[in-house]
Design a protein around this nucleic acid. Structure first.
Length: 111
DNA sequence: GATATGACCGCTG
DNA sequence: CCAGCGGCCATAT
């Protein structure tokens, strides 16, 4: 169980379509806390014990797989992303502008 | 209750 | 242009 903030983060992350990635700041901004990017990252950390949150689709602002270290393996995150059609080179998402999925732009004011 | 850490983001030098 | 530091939010100890 987690706080509402965590659930919100999980919900948004779960909304991320395959082959797309988003940033912590984008999620935080969608939740109404653009300064809580770090808290979002923490939520992803806890996502391991909550539900099937595709944290591998969540990267930092630069499209860098900052959290790949927190996954099971080292290339797992990279593997999953490429498996969904996302090009990843040196732990960095290529064509970020193309695969970038902004909840504030797609979901906008969902609630 | 307070201190330390973190999968971040942005600004200043 | 590249490098370094602080700030904000939330959780854990």
């Amino acid at each position: 169980m987690a706080t509402d903030f965590f659930e919100k983060v999980y919900k948004v992350v779960k909304q991320i379509p395959a082959g797309r990635v988003t940033s912590y700041g984008a999620i935080a901004s969608y939740l109404g806390a653009p300064r809580s990017s770090r808290a979002v990252g923490y939520a992803m950390n806890a996502s391991h014990s909550d539900a099937d949150v595709p944290a591998h689709r969540v990267v930092n602002r630069k499209g860098l797989l900052t959290g790949k270290h927190h996954f099971q393996g080292s290339n797992l995150m990279n593997q999953l992303l490429e498996s969904e059609g996302v090009k990843v080179v040196d732990d960095q998402v290529q064509d970020l502008a193309y695969v970038f999925w902004d909840p504030t732009d797609e979901l906008d004011e969902m609630e």
